[in-house]
Design a binder for these strands. Structure first.
Ligand SMILES: [Mn+2]
Ligand SMILES: [Mn+2]
Ligand SMILES: [Zn+2]
Ligand SMILES: [Zn+2]
Lengths: 135, 135
DNA sequence: TTCTATATAATAATGATTATCATTTACAAT
DNA sequence: ATTGTAAATGATAATCATTATTATATAGAA
């Protein structure tokens, strides 16, 4: 249950928190901007303030419930942390985002870090381009 | 010569443009934020407006003279495009940035893109962590 | 030197995100 | 169930990086 995740993060179980988590859990789409979440909730007649959305997203990120991405452009996007790391491919035309995971790349990153005496904590790999529509 | 690069970009050769390019070319440091460049020039008694710095950086980026990076945090950093692609390791404590290039990773990215029918145009790979000081 | 499109710098505006603060609420203790 | 209180909310103001506006200045061609 998600309520327990919120509790375990030391946060009270409130309507905005439940709804934001539910949206990220049940939506077809995986990646959302803050404003996007805000409008999605409003369209479902869930009254919430934009400040609360930002506040909750920050708290969920700190708690490890969600992940924050800084793709190109100005606004950040968030997604549920399902525990399985992956990187992204972003279609610069449509905005469509595809996830991928490559063991070879992940290993090389660790090796490179070690070679440089660098304690690797996290990384960000994003491919930008365009999906060639199957004609 | 750098003046020619500016001309070839279809831009007039002006003091701010010359100085911004010179700073990026001659500085020990490789990566600069816009505000950082602004203050650096002011400290050299080169009078320039912050709006001009942003404007010129945008123009230089469009012209391929420099590269713009969206690392974690809010402000972007710029560096001279020396034609040799590389990725970055960022020390989250000191802010120090180290560059690296790994052929295996670069190749895997291309293969992954091809597997997904994705026309790869650019990519961003950044490792975040901490350099372990050699004791 | 003159002309004019372009560039500059001061400043206002924008857009995303964060801070304030008065009001409301979750939830633990009664 | 009631109460008390720390935490949360939402309206709004404030920030901060970046972009737009515009009157003045200048690069560079003629
Ligand atoms: Mn993802
Ligand atoms: Mn670099
Ligand atoms: Zn990865
Ligand atoms: Zn690379």
């Amino acid at each position: 249950m998600d309520q327990s995740d919120i509790k375990e993060a030391g946060l009270k179980v409130t309507k905005p928190r439940i709804e934001i988590l539910k949206l990220l859990e049940t939506s077809e789409k995986q990646h959302f901007g803050a404003e996007e979440i805000y409008h999605e909730l409003l369209s479902k007649d869930i009254k919430v303030g934009i400040a609360t959305v930002y506040r909750v997203l920050t708290q969920f990120t700190a708690a490890g419930l969600i992940i924050k991405h800084n793709f190109e452009g100005d606004q950040c996007v968030f997604e549920l942390d399902r525990g399985e790391h992956h990187d992204h491919m972003v279609d610069m035309k449509s905005g469509k985002i595809i996830e991928f995971y490559d063991e070879i790349i992940e290993q090389r990153q660790k090796e490179i870090a070690k070679e440089h005496g660098f304690e690797l904590m996290e990384h960000s790999l994003t491919l930008y381009g365009e999906f060639k529509d199957k004609g």
